[in-house]
Each structure stands twice: as structure tokens, then as C-alpha cells.
Computed example of a mutant assay.
Amino acid sequence: MTNQTPGESRLFAQLRELHSAMDLAKVSYMLIGGFAVNIHGYVRATHDLDVMVLADDSDLLHDALRKLGYSAIDRRPDLACYFRGNDRLDVLYARRPISQRLLAQARHADLNGLSVPTISAEGLLGLKIQAFSDDPRRIRDLTDMMELVKVNRATMNLDEVRGYFRLFDNESILDDILKSTD
């Protein structure tokens, strides 16, 4: 189990431990998913960590996680899911040039003195529209997209965001989100 310090959440302790393990294993990663949504200004509950790593580093990551006591319950070429007790870690592998570029351009967020590589708000919206396009029942992703645009619209590169929505033939969703945040 994760070693929590007093006053530290289980999820943050998990992140701190993962960050150290990735540094030791020389695996570049960035936060995606709910924790990244929170970093970008829309605070919502999340119970797991989601990260992206280069596909070429999947075996290094797997070995590092096994040393921490994680077990892979699903491991595919594009993603993996690991558990250790109540700790869950979902991994998305960067294979395509767009994902690799997003990973290379990760921005560092300061979380209680820990500098954590995090996906850009634009990239996060790209992953959210991809997930929603794959499964429209993922209403949480739609809500995340609306709130992320509302909070970050003034500083966001909307041309980049539109490109992600266009990629999944869902520009109308972005148009609706933009209208709702006017």
C-alpha cells in the first residue's frame, strides 16, 4: 500500500509514489483524466490516477509498477489498467504522433511541492472528445469538456481544440459547448 503522510489524501500519496518510481525507471509520463481535470480548474471527485506514457516504455512502466505491488488486470497495445488494493492506475500509451507530441509538451503543475507533468487543457479536451466519441454514454466526459472550456476559454488555443473535435467529426459538440459558455 501507499505510504501516506498525515493530511495527505490516498490519491496524492499514490501520485507521489508513482512520480518517484517513474523518475527512477526513467519513464516520462503525464497526468491525464480526472486529476488533470482538477489541475485545469474544474474540481471534481476522482478515485484513480490516469497517466500517459510512450508506448515504447510500456515494459519499463510495467516492471516499475510490479515492484510497487501493482497487478495488471488489463494490458493491451494502447492501454493498461493496474490495481493494488484500493489503488487503481489507468495507462494510455502514446503511439500516434499527436499523443507523442502532447506527452513531449506536458506542462508541469506544482502540487504540494511536487512538480507533476500534466497534459495541456487543449490535449485533455482532445482525449475527452475521443473517449466520448468512442462511447457516448460517457456523460462525465461531456461534463468535463463543458467545464474545462468554461474555466479555460480565455487562455485556451481554440484552433487546436477545434482540430481535435474535427478529428472525431464532432465539431458541433464544440460549437454547442462554446455557445453555452458565452
Rank of each mutant, 00 (worst) to 15 (best):
E122M: 07
D59Y: 12
Q4I: 08
I73M: 10
A25Y: 10
A106N: 01
E8D: 06
G123I: 08
K67H: 12
D74I: 05
K128C: 06
R95C: 07
K179N: 10
D74L: 13
G123S: 09
I129C: 04
Y29D: 05
T118Y: 01
L31R: 02
Q100V: 13
L103H: 00
L125M: 14
D78K: 11
K179T: 12
I39Q: 06
L11G: 02
F12C: 01
M1T: 15
D48V: 05
H19C: 10
L178G: 05
F12A: 03
I139S: 02
D175V: 05
T118V: 12
L79F: 15
G126T: 00
I129E: 01
L127I: 08
A154I: 08
R44Y: 09
T2P: 12
D159G: 04
D78C: 07
A13C: 10
R138Y: 00
A25W: 11
M30V: 04
M1N: 14
G163M: 06
Y93F: 15
D59C: 11
L167G: 12
F83E: 13
V151R: 09
Y93S: 02
F83C: 08
V51W: 04
L61W: 00
A80C: 04
A106E: 03
G34L: 08
C81W: 06
K128A: 03
E160K: 04
A121K: 09
M145R: 05
L15D: 04
R16H: 14
T118N: 00
S180Q: 14
S71W: 13
D50A: 10
K67R: 14
K26N: 14
R96V: 07
D176Y: 11
E171V: 05
S71N: 14
R137Q: 07
H19L: 10
G33H: 03
L158Y: 11
S115Q: 14
S99L: 11
A94G: 10
R44E: 09
L167P: 08
Q4T: 15
H108I: 03
Y42L: 11
F35H: 04
A21P: 05
L31G: 02
L89H: 07
L125N: 12
S71H: 14
D144P: 02
D63G: 08
Q14Y: 08
D176M: 12
R96D: 15
L111M: 06
V151M: 08
N3M: 11
D59V: 12
L61S: 02
